[in-house]
Structure formats: C-alpha cells, structure tokens
C-alpha cells in the first residue's frame, strides 16, 4: 500500500514495462529474442534460465539474417508476471542480445510448430490413423506396410491434440521442433 497514493500500474515510457501488476498466477509467455549469431550465445540464454531457475517450455533457434549475423530464439516460458518481467530484463542484459519481444503481450501473434509422428500398426488402426491425419492436414512423409511417418504443422495445441489421437493408434516416436512465432500484421 502506498502512503502517498501514487497510482499503481501506470505505464512507463521505458523499453521495459516496469510497473506490472504482480499476481501469483502462472502465465505462459512466448518470447522472441534477437541475438548476435556468435558462438556461445545460446549457452548464455539457456544458462540464464537454468542458473536463475526459470522454466523453458519450448525453445527454438536458428539464424534468420546471415549478413546481419542475427539469430532468432523463440522461447516459451511460464511464471508469475513478476518472474516473466525478470526473465525479459535478464535476457536484455546479455550483451549479444539485441531485442527482446514478449509476443504474448505485444499484440496478436501467430505460433507454429512442426512435428513428426511415427505410427506403427496394421488393419483398422492403420486406416484410422490415416483418416485422422487427413482431417488434421498432416502429410505422410514415409510409409511402410506397418508404419507411417506423419508431418504436421500447426499451433502447439493442435499438435498436442493430434498426438493424443495417435497414441492409442500405435504412436511410437515423436519429434517436435518447438515453437516459432511472429507478430501478426505490421
């Protein structure tokens, strides 16, 4: 409680929103971190999360600008609003980090993930797997008489849903890329 009745939660003009309304609710945020593509930069980011006890739900990284030496790291993390703010500030402190964007709060964004599922089986189960794959717009990228490898792209929950359906049908292996995300529009 403020004795001087200063308005809480007013917005600041700095790069970081330093006046969040803290609560204990765990939130899931997708962060886009633009970094100098130099050796060790991923280790710095991961080391920050492990060293300070933050969660990584998903992490993807690849060079996105060869001439500019930029890589984009997309991190899905979860924590209380205070922890999320800390994570962003701590990321911003890493010297080769150029930009930190919280796609969850900066406006609408799209998230996509690519996954491959190996489903083994024969008979009805095999037919059902193929039928469901069709509904989910998954592609068959490999097939034998006893197995398929499906490739599916979509939002993470769509991939989760597909995995749930494939499990009783003979799902044996899963490979997921983790989330890539971009803000919508401009």
């Amino acid at each position: 409680m403020s004795a001087l009745k200063i308005k809480k939660g007013s917005t600041s003009h700095s790069a970081y929103n330093l006046r969040p309304n803290f609560s204990d609710v765990i939130e899931r945020h997708t962060l886009a971190v633009l970094v100098e593509n130099e050796p060790g930069v991923l280790a710095r980011v991961i080391g920050l999360f492990s060293g300070r006890g933050y969660n990584i739900d998903s992490l993807t990284v690849a060079e996105v600008d060869h001439t500019g030496h930029r890589s984009r790291i997309t991190i899905v993390t979860s924590g209380t609003p205070q922890v999320i703010e800390q994570i962003k500030a701590q990321l911003g402190r890493i010297v080769p980090v150029h930009e930190v964007h919280d796609l969850t709060v900066e406006g609408p964004s799209v998230e996509r993930e690519l996954a491959m599922f190996k489903v083994s089986g024969t008979g009805d189960k095999r037919v059902e797997a193929l039928r469901l794959a069709d509904i989910f717009r998954a592609n068959v990228v490999d097939s034998t008489l006893e197995s398929f490898v499906f490739e599916i792209t979509g939002a993470p929950d769509k991939i989760d849903a597909f995995a749930d359906l494939m499990r009783p049908l003979g799902l044996t292996d899963v490979a997921r890329t983790g989330v890539a995300a971009l803000p919508r529009g401009d």
Binding site: M1, A3, K8, S14, A15, Q82, A89
Partner: peptide, 27 residues
C-alpha cells in the same frame, strides 16, 4: 518497509522489481 512508496533509480532494468515491487522505477 510496509508503509512506503518506493522509488528505485538503477541503471540495470533487471534490478527493478526483482525483489521489492516499486512504485516509481527510474532506469
């Protein structure tokens, strides 16, 4: 310090609201 309005001047944004929630942050 339960009764105070807190201002925090720090060059490091990660110091702000790390431990104590402040009312007037200044980076």
């Amino acid at each position: 310090s339960p009764k105070s309005t807190k201002a925090h001047i720090d060059i490091d944004p990660s110091s702000i609201n790390k431990i104590i929630r402040v009312d007037i942050p200044i980076v």
